[in-house]
Design a protein around this nucleic acid. Structure first.
Length: 268
DNA sequence: AAAGTGAAAGATTGAACCGG
DNA sequence: CCGGTTCAATCTTTCACTTT
């Protein structure tokens, strides 16, 4: 079977990488016992696995040559930048999350809207939306590190159930990771799906970005799990630093929300 | 082009089940 | 009976695709 090489991939644009990988992936034969929804994931994984190590090593060398982003000060600014961008984007989107009383009256989306409980409607909608969109932020932050690859951002394609691929501490074999916000983010009924998605790959891990949420709601004998500092150490980033910036970010969003309440939006 | 539809993905909650 | 694990149901947004 033909194999893609890291040196082929590196000089290409994201779109060209995606195209090349697709070409090779389509030639991969999928074992019959693989769930049909995961065929594509299997093919891409099979294509990518042999090149990942070289690809990531290249990222690491390049990072070192230009002054590593993992150095504490640089790392801190990099994380802060992502958090600030996220906060700004979210704050801009907040006004769009507010529905008019008339809309709520005519087609309530939940009990709070039905009752016209404005404070609950808004706080529920905002915090809900925030929790969801923050999920993507952890992937972006993980991708700051040269030890990681984001299938989506680096190769322009998605691997079902995989948020990041990590060369732990810059050594060993690349690990396919599914990242959640908390240990209890995933529920039992979604766990089987996560297991199927992760078990496709030789080296895999289930990760929670923060050690919150009580206990784990995901368990498997074949898939290791990590949370908080343990996870970010693999990635090469500092958990405490991340927590610091995330705290700033969330508080910033909260105060923007509070002042939105006090100063009614300008009518256009 | 605009509007509607449905699948996917993320989060949360409540309840059942099981071994000690 | 308790704690941990697993199931089930629900809520919300996004995105691709279809229909109008």
């Amino acid at each position: 079977m033909q194999i893609v090489k890291a040196t082929q991939l590196i000089p290409l644009s994201i779109a060209a990488r995606s195209q090349l990988i697709e070409e090779y992936a389509s030639l991969v034969t999928v074992p019959t016992d693989i769930n049909s929804e995961l065929h594509r994931a299997y093919q891409i994984s099979a294509t990518l696995t042999p090149v990942l190590s070289d690809f990531i090593q290249h990222q690491i060398q390049k990072d070192i040559s230009q002054g590593s982003v993992l150095e504490r000060n640089r790392q801190s600014t990099a994380i802060a930048t992502e958090c600030e961008q996220f906060a700004n984007r979210f704050i801009d989107s907040m006004p769009t999350l507010v529905r008019s009383p008339a809309e709520m009256e005519s087609s309530p989306r939940n009990l709070y809207e039905m009752c016209g409980a404005a404070v609950f409607v808004e706080s529920n909608s905002i915090s809900r939306n925030l929790s969801t969109t923050m999920g993507d932020l952890w992937e972006i932050i993980a991708n700051i590190s040269p030890y990681t690859v984001s299938p989506e951002r680096d190769f322009g394609l998605k691997i079902t159930g995989i948020d990041s691929i990590i060369l732990c501490g810059g050594k060993g074999e690349p690990v396919f990771a599914q990242i959640k916000t908390q240990r209890n983010t995933l529920t039992g009924s979604q766990a089987p799906r996560s297991k199927r998605e992760l078990e496709l790959h030789q080296h895999r891990i289930f990760a929670a970005a923060f050690c919150t949420g009580g206990g784990w709601t995901f368990s498997s004998t074949s898939i290791p799990r990590v949370c908080g500092a343990e996870f970010w150490t693999m990635v090469g980033l500092e958990y405490e630093l991340l927590k610091f910036h995330v705290k700033q970010m969330i508080l910033k969003i909260q105060s923007a929300y509070v002042s939105l309440q006090q100063e009614p939006p300008i009518l256009k």
